[in-house]
Structures are given as structure tokens and as C-alpha cells.
Amino acid sequence: MTGILEGRVAIVTGAGRGLGRAHALELARQGARVVVNDLGTSGAGAGTSAGPAEEVVAEIRAAGGEAVANGADVADFAAAEALVHQAVATFGALDVLVNNAGFVRDRMLVNTSEEEWDAVIRVHLKGHFAPLRFAGAYWRQEAKAGRPRAARIVNTSSGAGLQGSVGQGTYSAAKAGIAGLTLVAAEELAPYGVTVNAIAPSARTRMTEGPFAATMAAPAEGFDRMDPANVSPVVAWLASEDSGDVTGRVVEIEGGRICLEDGWRHGPVAELDTRWNAADVGPAVRDLIKASPAPERPYGAR
């Protein structure tokens, strides 16, 4: 297998099914040696199984690539550290981290339990931070030792985290946090040669089987816009050395459409040389709203 990732070593989390599986296969097809991480849980995060990760490894090897399986819980610090160590011990280095693992427990806010909130925030947000933290520490160490690498991190946010999604408040909060984490990590890791970007994919996976099933269905014929494999070439390019001038960005992908997200930025300003009187704030804010574009409404808004 040769391609734009020839000779590079990648970790893909949550790579046993759906988007993660498609990413692992595409990265391997482009020449990367891949650590296929998957805990093997259900779509709601229940249970574990080594099967999904091992099946993807077998598929990569059957196509002539190199891959190993990892069953770590990426939100566990010790397991995340061991995951990074496995990549280095097995393949001699680490160049790419694709953070993808996650699950959903959709609820309206007033019906969401504490356990559901904690579980979703943990797997998405902490499950991004823990591998990023240890991969980043490895690349900092390499840079300080005079062995800088053209390292890449690709995080997975979502339109739910950028525009919001009714019935997915917890998931939306976690994915918004990932977008913010991406911006900070891009700045902090830049001195070590690391770029950090995020994708906001739209694809047919176990996580979209519920509220979006109708729009995600595969067509009887023609281009399947919701095939997870449509997203993976963008991930592969972001993982390549060629993407070194791109960092701190969120890229939305659906089918053959690539959209560069335009996140929070300073807008119109009203300013006094003294403290505001509370009664004057309303008119000032309404004038600012009139001078600003209307925000996009959350997915599912009526």
C-alpha cells in the first residue's frame, strides 16, 4: 500500500465500526501503519468486545497493510498512555492521532440523567483529551531531543457541537468542547511541529440510526452521500505531511461537500467609558443583534 501517508504511523480511536473503521482502512490504504483502537461497546456504550478492532486489523492486513489492535478505554488515562506507547513500541514512532471514539445517549435536557451526562461527556471529551495529552507529550519529547515529527491530530466534532441539535444536549456540549479543545491544542502544540484540526462529519453510523435515520438511509442507486467512507479522504489528507500549513480548523464533510466552519469570532461592539446602566443594556444589545447575521438554528429546531 502506497499513498500520501507512506511510512507514517497512526492511531485511530473507535475504529472498529462506522467512521473510525473507514478512517483506519483509508489511512492504511494511503500507506500508514495503523493502531486500530476500539473498546467494542454498543452504540450506547454498553459492554466490550475485541472483535470489531480485530476484524478491521484483519481487513487491513488482507489488503497488504500493517495494523495492530488495541482495546483500550481511551477515556482512561493509563490506558490512553499505554495506547501511545503501543504505537511507538510496535512501529517505532507515532505521527498521527485520529480521535473518533464515542457513543450517544440522546435525551431532551429535562429527561437527561446524571449518569447519561457523565458517560457521554467522558467518552467524547475526556476520550479526546487523554490520547491527545499523551501523544502531545511524546511529540514534545521528540522535538526537544532534536527529532521533531510532522505530527497531526484530527479530532471529531459535529454539527451538533457547532450549531446544536435538539434532543442531543449532552452530545452537543461534548462536541462543542472538542472544537474548543482543538483551538487550544493547535496553539500549544505548534512549537513541536504538531497540527491539530477537527472534522464535523455527516455520515450513516450507529450514532445516527435514531433521530436521523430517514435522512441517512442509503439510496437505491447513485452516489451514497451518507457513506462513512466519504469522510475518510479528508482525514487522510489532514493526517499527511502536506497539511502542515493548516491547523486550528474545523472542517465539515458530507458526501462530496467540504465546508470550512467559521466559529465564534468578535462581532459588533457597543462601548461606554463607564459602567453600563442595566436599563440601557437591552437597547444596546438589540442594536448589536440588528447589525449581526442571525445565528443558525439548532438541528431539529421547529
Rank of each mutant, 00 (worst) to 15 (best):
L25H: 14
Y192N: 06
V285C: 04
D280S: 07
A160M: 10
R297P: 10
D273R: 08
W139F: 02
D73E: 15
A72T: 08
G167I: 11
V251K: 05
G18S: 03
Q168S: 15
E6F: 04
T41W: 02
T274C: 01
S165N: 15
V104F: 01
A214S: 15
A137V: 12
Y171R: 11
W276Y: 08
F212Q: 11
G146W: 13
L272H: 02
P131A: 00
G244P: 01
A75I: 11
G47E: 06
P148A: 02
D118Q: 06
G40L: 14
A174N: 01
S158Y: 13
R105A: 05
P201A: 04
P52W: 00
T274Q: 02
T208N: 10
T215E: 04
I11G: 10
W139N: 03
E187S: 05
E54V: 08
S292F: 01
Q141H: 15
G47C: 03
R249T: 07
E66S: 15
L272W: 01
A173Q: 08
Y192V: 02
A294C: 08
A190Q: 07
I153L: 04
G256H: 01
P228T: 02
R257L: 03
V57L: 00
D38Q: 12
A174K: 00
F212N: 12
G47P: 09
A291C: 15
A72W: 07
T156V: 04
L125N: 06
F129L: 06
R206T: 11
A89H: 12
G64D: 11
V194S: 00
L97G: 05
A63H: 13
K290F: 01
L125Q: 06
M226L: 10
V231E: 06
L162D: 03
I253F: 05
A67K: 14
V84I: 15
P191M: 02
S240Y: 12
